[in-house]
Design a protein around this nucleic acid. Structure first.
Length: 727
DNA sequence: GTAATGTGTTTTTTT
DNA sequence: AACACATTAC
């Protein structure tokens, strides 16, 4: 999302040249008078640019006040950049009044103001995935359901999908057609009740409750409808039903709705993204004007042609013809690695070589399908002493210490939030255990108050074990003081004081371990994050900060200026671009992922993901796969991804390895005995078995063995396999 | 109650 | 292989 990307050359973003840098198609979209418009924008065709220019155009040429424009972006980072870009175009901080943000941020803001109309308290807390699963688990237990038959993750995901479609518990129950979905409907109902009791919303509720609000409170809807003369939506191909409903509702009066997207880049189906939103835009808005941006400013001809060839294998799509005036460029390089280690070594060696040629580290990105793949690259980068940053994986605010401190703050803000109560009360240990908590909860339930309130109640305190009564009183006092302070000091100071006053800091200091030290560091980082938030937004309230934190994304924290190699998933890479892209792990089962291959739609989405990955590259694209890969500690032979076969062979060149072609794994340097077919062998984990088939020779041999637990394919270079007899 | 040990789970992608 | 959670040992 660098500011100068995907633009005709030499463009300067100043007020005097608002249209000078745009091609005819872009200009048309920017200047279009109004009404519903769909801008089909291919990868690298300058869609973000068009949005920024259109906003600037509306403000400057048409005199629309910035506060009457609403723009929806896919990430907070994109929102900030868009705002900065509009300011640069207009030569001042004009965009300050603009409403711009992600769906979640915008809806969160609306709910803070009007949520009470639909029963959402002003001080609602946002539950993250972990919190949400915890609630599902509790509901399953309450309903006496077996969590093996109804895995919390699965049930939670089903509830999430229902919410993406805008189905409440009642509607979902009505649509339920078998025992399983009927049961999920029951869980869904109780889950919603439990969230409500705790004053909590999950991610999907933020959108769904806003839509409910707009439907049930016509005066609120009218307020926003009147206000927003123009609504613009980026990454429209990844909106779900509810998001479409929100946009259609808010733009319903002035009908100036501009949606920008690319059906070939829709990659969030698992999250409810509904590609029909883009494919059937004209049905929803018969008077819509369609624009097409087909000139790519980003990639070389080679890269673009290869990507086009891959995506052409998808049968269900709007065909477009992307073209570019950029040079042909170098061929795509394909590296066949022995295993994951070898693959990582190749990538890191290549990056090191580039750096030797004077190319900064920041020009390189490694893209992979699953977060777990980052580890191998991290190991090699660490060994080579090359700076890097991993986007994604365990998020900062999901770390235990961060969540612990936030639990105190959330509890002070929303005493109903029992999930936070349980968390806060447990760390540091203060002598309040299961028994005490259960007594308090029972007391609270009997009186219809919250457990937090019970803690301040003399009768309740009398019922808990004597040793705990003092601790309970202290804890209630502690939370009370935090709440009191929250109203008076800014949030960064509040956090700093909370870390100290809860005894958390002391606990970690006393522990003295390396790990404790790093946890303390993370807490300091949390204070810094709060300070930056205050500086950036001018907001100092706890509510605003907690909401901001809950809705922050991985890419939001990515520092593109730092001279480091970036590692991220293909999903995170959407909207970004790099001179050199390494697309790793192109193996059947990994990419496309095994869980998607069954369904045609799943496979098509994987292919779009591949297309997204390839089109991130400006100059150089490296494709790699390993012949064997370890999954859950077990080595599996791997087959190159079908996507590699779908790339035009004329544009591919075999990459030359600079590393040892053979890995030095556990058995890598030793000699191995290849057992003949029929031999009895023993494996440390699988026990004894008989060899059915042998492929390859020496350390690269792969044997198929019948064990009692089933048939396994094992790579001799790694597998702890012992030959017992030649059979 | 904590430390050591054992067991099971994880990996699809994310707001 | 790595990690979280549970159980056991002390």
């Amino acid at each position: 999302m660098s500011s100068d990307r995907s633009s005709p050359p030499l463009g300067t973003e100043t007020a005097s040249s608002l249209l000078a840098d745009l091609n005819p198609a872009q200009t048309e979209a920017v200047e279009h008078p109004g009404g519903p418009m769909l801008i089909l924008a291919g990868a690298g065709s300058g869609k973000t640019r068009v949005l920024a220019y259109r906003i600037a155009h509306l403000i400057r040429e048409r005199g629309i006040p910035s506060r009457r424009i609403l723009a929806v972006t896919f990430t907070n980072k994109a929102a900030n950049e868009m705002r900065g870009r509009v300011d640069r175009l207009l030569g001042g901080p004009i965009a300050r009044g603009l409403w711009i943000g992600t769906f979640h941020a915008i809806c969160g803001r609306i709910l803070r103001v009007h949520g009470e109309r639909v029963g959402v308290p002003r001080n609602y807390v946002i539950y993250d995935t972990e919190d949400q699963r915890g609630v599902v688990r509790e509901v399953l237990a309450d309903l006496g359901l077996d969590d093996r038959r109804f895995p919390p993750e699965v049930v939670h995901a089903m509830i999430g999908r229902a919410k993406d479609e805008g189905l409440g518990p009642a509607e979902y129950a009505a649509a339920a057609e078998n025992f399983y979905t009927e049961t999920v409907a029951r869980v869904y109902r109780v889950y919603q009740e439990m969230l409500r009791q705790r004053g909590a919303l999950d991610f999907d509720d933020i959108l769904m409750e806003t839509l409910t609000l707009l439907v049930e409170a016509p005066d609120v809807l009218a307020e926003y409808q009147d206000r927003f003369l123009h609504v613009l939506v980026d990454e429209y191909q990844d909106t779900n039903r509810v998001q479409f409903g929100l946009v259609a509702a808010i733009a319903g009066r002035h009908r100036n709705l501009a949606c920008v997207g690319d059906d070939d880049q829709s990659i969030y189906r698992f999250r409810g993204a509904d590609i029909t939103n883009i494919l059937e835009f004209e049905k929803a808005f018969p008077d819509a004007t369609i624009f097409k941006l087909e000139q790519n400013y980003r990639s070389t001809k080679s890269i673009l042609a290869a990507a086009a060839e891959v995506i052409a294998h998808n049968p269900h799509r709007h065909t477009k013809t992307l073209w570019t005036e950029n040079p042909q460029g170098v061929p795509l390089q394909v590296y066949e690695a022995f295993d994951g280690h070898d693959e990582a070594r190749f990538v890191v060696d290549t990056i090191r070589r580039f750096h030797g040629d004077g190319r900064p580290y920041r020009e390189n990105v490694v893209l992979y399908r699953t977060n777990a793949q980052s580890r191998l690259f991290e190991e090699q980068l660490l060994r080579a002493g090359i700076p890097y940053q991993v986007v994604g994986g365990v998020r900062f605010y999901e770390r235990k210490e961060v969540k612990d401190i936030l639990a105190y703050l959330r509890l002070a803000m929303t005493p109903k939030d029992t999930a936070s109560l349980r968390r806060a009360v447990a760390t540091p240990r203060r002598g309040i255990g299961e028994i005490t908590l259960a007594r308090l909860e029972a007391f609270a339930a009997a009186r219809g108050i919250t457990a937090m309130e019970a803690m301040g109640h003399p009768d309740a305190v009398a019922e808990v074990p004597r040793v705990a009564s003092r601790a309970v009183g202290d804890f209630a006092g502690l939370i009370e003081r935090i709440r009191d302070r929250a109203a008076r000091v800014r949030v960064s100071d509040l956090i700093e004081q909370t870390i100290a006053h809860t005894g958390y800091q002391e606990m970690l200091e006393r522990e003295g371990s390396e790990e404790a030290y790093s946890r303390l560091e993370n807490l300091r980082e949390l204070v810094t994050v709060a300070q930056e938030f205050e500086e950036l937004t001018g907001e100092e309230s706890l509510e605003a900060f907690l909401q901001h934190l809950a809705l922050i994304t991985d890419v939001d924290t990515w520092q593109e200026q730092a001279d480091r190699v970036t590692l991220m998933t293909l999903h995170s890479a959407k909207g970004l671009e790099f001179p050199t892209v390494f697309l790793a792990g192109l193996e059947e089962g990994l990419f496309p992922h095994a869980r998607t291959i069954e369904e045609e739609q799943g496979l098509e989405e994987e292919r779009r993901l591949c297309y997204v990955g390839m089109t991130r590259a400006k100059e150089r694209l490296y494709i790699s796969y390993a012949r064997q890969r370890m999954i859950f500690g077990v080595i599996h032979p791997a087959v190159p991804s079908r996507f590699v076969d779908e790339m035009p062979q004329t544009l591919l060149a075999p990459a030359v390895a600079t590393a040892q072609p053979l890995a030095s794994g556990p058995n890598g340097d030793r000699e191995v005995t290849v057992p003949p077919v029929g031999a009895q062998v023993r494996h440390a984990r699988f026990g004894e078995g008989r060899v059915l088939e042998v492929e390859g020779e020496g350390v690269r041999a792969v044997v198929t063995v019948q064990f009692t637990i089933g048939i396994k394919r094992l790579a001799l270079g790694y597998a702890p396999l012992e030959t017992l007899s030649a059979g």
